[in-house]
């Protein structure tokens, strides 16, 4: 029964814990995300949102609990020996991630940033990878920048290249870690538009964000985290208009005015 549940859901998290030494960042997270669902994770800084996201592709190794992504176990506390058998590179290649600081490789051109992983990890033919990259760059509105180095692009353009780079691996799931937090306000819109398009195409997305407007318009579900736990979750209409917990009310009051 557990097996079938795993296969129908993009992400399954049970009792996830993460601590650095004595400091507990995540203190037991249970969360299931369906294919095609867009989930926005909101909460004050230090609440564990980014850590949760980074545990999903093992950029952070959890301290306890279990995680399955796209039907495969990523981490399991019960069977520690199984963790060694997990092919984390293979799983990561199916989960795209976009970072707050873009993390484009400055020594590679825009095109080479996008085709690097398809060539190296997927062993694609160069012509095929380039063709795909061109389609993606058109999609994010940056066809004319294919030969530029990242340093000559604005933050918003860099972030859109980063999205194209993640999409080049044909991920089943996309993780966004505060994708617009490092951008000048006037550049935020272009990045959010690309993300909206992606959501409307049915991509499974987990977005850690402070953009409440985006969360309200695009998310199927909002997760509110505080101090390492999920305090409240629900559809945006319900959550924003009728917050149940005092902590969420307080948080919304501080970010919405």
């Amino acid at each position: 029964m557990v097996e079938t549940a795993i296969k129908t859901q993009a992400i399954q998290i049970k009792e996830l814990r993460k601590s650095y030494g004595a400091q507990e960042i995540l203190t037991g997270i249970d969360l299931n995300i369906n294919y095609g669902e867009v989930v926005c994770v909101i909460g004050p800084s230090g609440s564990g949102k980014s850590t949760l996201l980074r545990c999903l592709n093992l950029l952070e190794v959890p301290s306890g609990g279990t995680i399955s992504v796209d039907g495969e176990a990523v981490f399991s506390q019960q069977n520690k020996s199984d963790n060694k058998k997990i092919n984390i590179q293979e799983i990561r290649s199916r989960v795209g991630m976009v970072f707050q600081q873009f993390n484009l490789w400055p020594h590679k051109t825009v095109l080479n940033n996008v085709i690097e992983a398809p060539l190296l990890v997927r062993k694609q033919e160069k012509a095929q990878a380039v063709e795909k990259a061109e389609v993606l760059l058109r999609k994010v509105g940056l066809s004319d920048k294919r030969s530029s180095y990242p340093s000559s692009l604005s933050g918003g353009q860099q972030q859109r290249v980063a999205i194209a780079r993640a999409l080049a691996m044909d991920p089943k799931i996309m993780l966004f870690d505060e994708p617009t937090s490092a951008l000048d306000p006037e550049l935020v819109g272009d990045v959010l538009k690309v993300m909206k398009d992606l959501a409307s195409e049915g991509m499974t997305m987990v977005v850690v964000t402070h953009e409440m407007g985006f969360a309200r318009d695009v998310a199927d579900r909002i997760i509110f985290m505080d101090q390492g736990v999920i305090v409240e979750e629900g559809a945006p209409s319900e959550l924003f208009s009728n917050p149940k917990s005092a902590r969420l009310r307080q948080f919304l009051a501080s970010v919405l005015d």
Binding site: N57, L59, Q89, E90, I91, R92, S93, R94, V95, G96, M97, F99, N103, L104, W105, E116, A117, L120, V121, A162, R165, A166, M169
Partner: peptide, 10 residues
């Protein structure tokens, strides 16, 4: 820089 590469499965 390494994290971005790791996240892509490199």
């Amino acid at each position: 820089q390494a994290e971005a590469a790791r996240a892509l499965g490199m």
